[in-house]
Computed example of a mutant assay.
Amino acid sequence: MPEISPPAAPPRTDHTLIDDTQGLAYGSFMAALSVVVLTHLGFVTGQTAGIALLISYATGWDWAWVFFVVNIPFYWVGWKRFGPTFVAKSLFAVTLTSVLAALLPRYLSFSDLNPLLGAIMIGAFTGSGLIALFRHGASLGGIGIVGLYIQDATGFRAGWVQLIVDAAIFAVALFLLDPVAVGWSFLGAVVANLTIAINHRRDRYIV
């Protein structure tokens, strides 16, 4: 009998401009929606978004502007590590997220939101938004870029860099926020990371 060959994999095609625009817009919208829930509940998160939240809580400055400014130094690192296209897409995503996070509270509010449900919502919104951005060649987190840069230069794993920074952010948050809120925030971070780990795998999905 002739050997039966497995079905050929579908040809891979690059994202079009429309694909990228939609993906970056969706990812930015979900990230901004997550920030609205975060700030309503007084929670915190990791990466540059978490740094911006801590600065916002401590100073009263608007998160959207702080987030935009905090990310500026990381664009140079991103340019060196990933090139101008990545930086341009990331700049677009960060700018759009900042704008939406400033505008959405005018049209969306919560009279009562259970913190458990809020933490799950934050994780789901963040995870799905970041997956969309990753798959369209962008990022919201400058810490991840620096982690990869350090990994290339020293061999120290990028994941450990991000973990150390996130641990520091949550440690500082304990001095600024209610410990219970920090605990709920940690749950949201777990949900977000599980969402990304399970659904953003190159060995399982075509990206």
Rank of each mutant, 00 (worst) to 15 (best):
residue 11 P to S: 09
residue 124 A to Q: 12
residue 157 R to T: 09
residue 161 V to P: 08
residue 194 L to S: 04
residue 82 F to Y: 15
residue 60 G to L: 00
residue 178 D to R: 01
residue 139 S to L: 10
residue 128 S to G: 11
residue 26 Y to M: 13
residue 183 G to W: 02
residue 87 V to F: 11
residue 41 L to T: 08
residue 30 M to E: 05
residue 136 H to E: 06
residue 186 F to E: 03
residue 103 L to G: 00
residue 152 D to G: 08
residue 33 L to P: 01
residue 15 H to N: 07
residue 22 Q to A: 15
residue 75 Y to Q: 07
residue 163 L to M: 15
residue 178 D to T: 05
residue 11 P to Q: 01
residue 14 D to N: 10
residue 169 I to S: 04
residue 172 V to K: 10
residue 111 S to T: 12
residue 163 L to I: 13
residue 54 L to Y: 10
residue 45 T to W: 03
residue 84 P to T: 06
residue 122 I to E: 03
residue 113 L to E: 06
residue 72 I to K: 05
residue 96 L to I: 07
residue 192 A to F: 06
residue 184 W to V: 08
residue 116 L to A: 12
residue 186 F to S: 15
residue 205 Y to P: 12
residue 69 V to I: 15
residue 50 G to K: 06
residue 104 L to Q: 09
residue 51 I to S: 08
residue 84 P to I: 02
residue 122 I to M: 00
residue 41 L to E: 11
residue 35 V to K: 03
residue 54 L to G: 01
residue 97 T to I: 13
residue 114 N to A: 08
residue 91 L to Q: 08
residue 159 G to H: 09
residue 74 F to G: 09
residue 154 T to I: 00
residue 85 T to V: 13
residue 88 A to T: 07
residue 155 G to K: 07
residue 15 H to F: 11
residue 186 F to D: 05
residue 201 R to F: 08
residue 22 Q to S: 15
residue 25 A to S: 15
residue 58 A to N: 01
residue 140 L to E: 00
residue 21 T to W: 03
residue 18 I to H: 10
residue 111 S to C: 09
residue 162 Q to S: 10
residue 164 I to Y: 10
residue 159 G to W: 07
residue 184 W to Y: 14
residue 187 L to K: 07
residue 27 G to D: 04
residue 65 W to K: 09
residue 82 F to E: 03
residue 205 Y to M: 13
residue 81 R to L: 13
residue 128 S to Y: 11
residue 129 G to P: 12
residue 152 D to P: 07
residue 52 A to T: 05
residue 157 R to Q: 12
residue 117 L to C: 04
residue 28 S to D: 03
residue 132 A to Y: 14
residue 164 I to H: 04
residue 194 L to T: 07
residue 32 A to C: 01
residue 102 A to E: 05
residue 85 T to D: 14
residue 90 S to V: 00
residue 39 T to P: 00
residue 74 F to S: 03
residue 115 P to W: 05
residue 48 T to R: 04
residue 123 G to R: 00
residue 181 A to G: 07
residue 22 Q to G: 14
residue 138 A to D: 14
residue 21 T to G: 14
residue 36 V to C: 01
residue 109 S to R: 05
residue 4 I to L: 08
residue 194 L to G: 02
residue 128 S to F: 15
residue 13 T to K: 15
residue 164 I to C: 03
residue 120 I to P: 06
residue 111 S to N: 14
residue 198 I to V: 14
residue 21 T to C: 13
residue 117 L to R: 10
residue 71 N to A: 02
residue 71 N to I: 04
residue 78 G to V: 12
residue 46 G to K: 00
residue 167 A to M: 08
residue 149 Y to F: 15
residue 71 N to R: 01
residue 163 L to N: 10
residue 86 F to N: 11
residue 35 V to L: 14
residue 186 F to A: 15
residue 108 L to D: 09
residue 164 I to R: 02
residue 69 V to W: 02
residue 203 D to K: 05
residue 47 Q to D: 10
residue 187 L to A: 11
residue 20 D to Q: 09
residue 166 D to K: 11
residue 110 F to I: 00
residue 181 A to L: 13
residue 100 L to K: 03
residue 60 G to K: 07
residue 100 L to N: 00
residue 118 G to H: 06
residue 147 G to R: 03
residue 56 S to G: 13
residue 97 T to Y: 09
residue 152 D to R: 13
residue 156 F to K: 05
residue 66 V to L: 01
residue 137 G to K: 14
residue 83 G to S: 06
residue 3 E to H: 04
residue 139 S to I: 09
residue 101 A to K: 06
residue 33 L to E: 01
residue 169 I to C: 06
residue 162 Q to I: 15
